[in-house]
């Protein structure tokens, strides 16, 4: 993939005409995008195929007929909407919690000048590194003492107290905002919280949207957290359900592909609606121009 990139860009320098440039750029994009999409096509089209059709030799992309049997069977097999509801509750709180707590902390690390700040920020970085495997048992015992096991709380409460990845991300954005912008407000006597809320936050919409999306994906796909902290079918999430459809000897391909499609499609639609807003829409127009 990369070698094509280079080759093509060298070619482009040789003949820098606008049209050729575009053709090549689209060519590269389409080529890479197709590579990225193949698994997804298999996933989506596969959800309409029977188990035997999936493995037919030679392989055929399109199903013989678009059968919704897998979908019907999946809704019979798992309480999809209960799992969806549970997932959405966890996801919703995760997004809200991350946005509030991480933007506050990031403001403290990026916009305020205080002694020892960068050293304290190193702690943020350090906490990113520790693998969850070693914190899992102490955390479980802690949550257990609090009586939180078997509730959504272990999956919700911590995100209201900051996530190092998101703090780091938002800090990088806040740091980039020139001091002059907030300086004027400060001279006018605006409080730090006011500056945070009415100047920085609106300007950081792309970054915040990014955090929201990451918080979404993180909790949407989280498997080990729900597995360890939740108990009982009625609390399970969709990603947990995905791992339960598969048994070691029988991957249950057709149903897995179906659930996978159902987990991807709504998000995809949502993403389609939001993406314009969250990357393209705000070119930080007021800031840099």
């Amino acid at each position: 993939m990369n070698s094509t990139n280079q080759k093509v860009s060298r070619k482009r320098r040789i003949s820098p005409s606008e049209i050729l440039f575009k053709v090549i750029m689209y060519g590269i994009l389409v080529a890479i995008a197709v590579c990225f999409l193949i698994p997804f096509m298999f996933l989506f089209l596969g959800s309409f195929k029977g188990e035997s059709e999936l493995f037919r030799v030679p392989f055929k992309w399109l199903p013989d007929r678009f059968s919704f049997d897998n979908y019907v069977k999946m809704f019979q097999t798992i309480p999809f909407f209960t799992y969806l509801r549970n997932t959405l509750i966890i996801v919703g709180f995760n997004i809200a919690g991350s946005l509030i707590s991480c933007s506050l902390a990031a403001y403290g690390f990026a916009r305020l000048h205080w002694t020892g700040r960068d050293k304290v920020f190193m702690i943020v970085i350090v906490t990113m590194i520790l693998p969850y495997q070693v914190t899992l048992v102490p955390l479980f015992l802690l949550f257990n003492k609090l009586g939180w096991i078997g509730t959504f709380l272990p999956l919700i409460v911590p995100c209201f107290f900051g996530n190092p990845f998101f703090i780091f991300l938002l800090r990088q954005f806040f740091v980039g905002v020139p001091d002059e912008i907030t300086y004027a407000a400060r001279v006018d006597g605006a409080s730090e919280f006011r500056i945070y809320l009415s100047i920085l936050m609106p300007m950081a919409k792309p970054a915040l949207a990014t955090v929201a999306i990451f918080a979404f994906i993180r909790s949407w796909n989280d498997f080990i957290g729900p597995l360890v902290f939740l108990s009982g079918d009625e609390l399970y999430t969709l990603s947990l359900a995905a791992s339960m459809l598969k048994s070691p000897l029988n991957p249950n391909w057709a149903l897995l592909l179906t659930l996978g499609s159902l987990m991807v499609l709504p998000v995809l639609i949502l993403f389609f609606i939001l993406q314009k807003y969250f990357i393209q829409g705000i070119a930080m127009s007021g800031v840099k121009g």
């Binding site: 698994p39 996933l43 498997f223 990603s239 598969k246 592909l257 996978g260 987990m263 995809l268």
Partner: peptide
């Protein structure tokens, strides 16, 4: 295109892994 590049992160890990085994 952005969405296409982003799709893979939306697929649940278990499912994505099986897709890769297949590919």
């Amino acid at each position: 295109f952005r969405i296409m590049f982003f799709i893979p992160t939306l697929i649940p890990t278990v499912v994505a892994c099986l897709l890769w085994v297949w590919m």
